[in-house]
């Protein structure tokens, strides 16, 4: 199926978050960001916490994503994520609170603590949400 668009689908365990036709996708891979244009060779990779950006015409849109997988196949791209949020769905207050909470905890515990990285990841997710919501 020859096409000049990519069918982008994003799903979390709870629901399908997005199903749109786009011109370009830039996603945060575990080993660095990667861009996808129509006709991309089949590609399977992991996605880490960050912003997934897609372009429709000249319009850029963002999604806050967390850990998951992306599968690219020429003219379609499927992203399976633990959590994905569109800017409109993000509760900025809640994210801000989560950020403060994580920062508070991180200040208290030391690097050796087994919760340290969990808290760091929580902070990461909160910051990510805030950035996406503010774009």
């Amino acid at each position: 199926m020859e096409s000049d668009k990519i069918r982008l689908k994003i799903a979390s365990p709870y629901r399908e978050v997005l199903d749109v036709e786009v011109d370009e996708v830039i996603a945060p891979g575990e080993e660095g960001q990667f861009g996808v244009l129509p006709g991309h060779t089949p590609f399977l990779t992991t996605v880490s916490v960050g912003q997934l950006t897609y372009r429709q015409g000249s319009q850029l849109k963002h999604v806050a994503v967390s850990h998951g997988y992306a599968e690219v196949e020429y003219y379609k791209m499927i992203v399976l994520l633990d959590a994905a949020e569109l800017p409109d769905d993000i509760d900025l207050d809640r994210a801000e609170k989560a950020r403060l909470r994580a920062e508070g905890r991180l200040a208290e515990i030391s690097l050796e603590d087994k919760d340290y990285f969990e808290e760091l990841a929580a902070l990461d997710r909160a910051m990510n949400r805030i950035t996406v919501a503010k774009i």
Binding site: P13, G29, E30, E31, T41, P42, F43, L44, T45, T46, Y69, E71, E73
Partner: peptide, 27 residues
């Protein structure tokens, strides 16, 4: 089967995906 490019390698990906697949099934 479609020939994919894998990043990281397929073994690593598989080890990562299998548990997640189990969680999804339980869910």
């Amino acid at each position: 089967p479609v020939e994919y490019l894998y990043e990281p390698s397929e073994d690593v990906l598989l080890a990562d995906i299998i548990p997640r697949h189990i969680y999804t099934q339980v869910f």
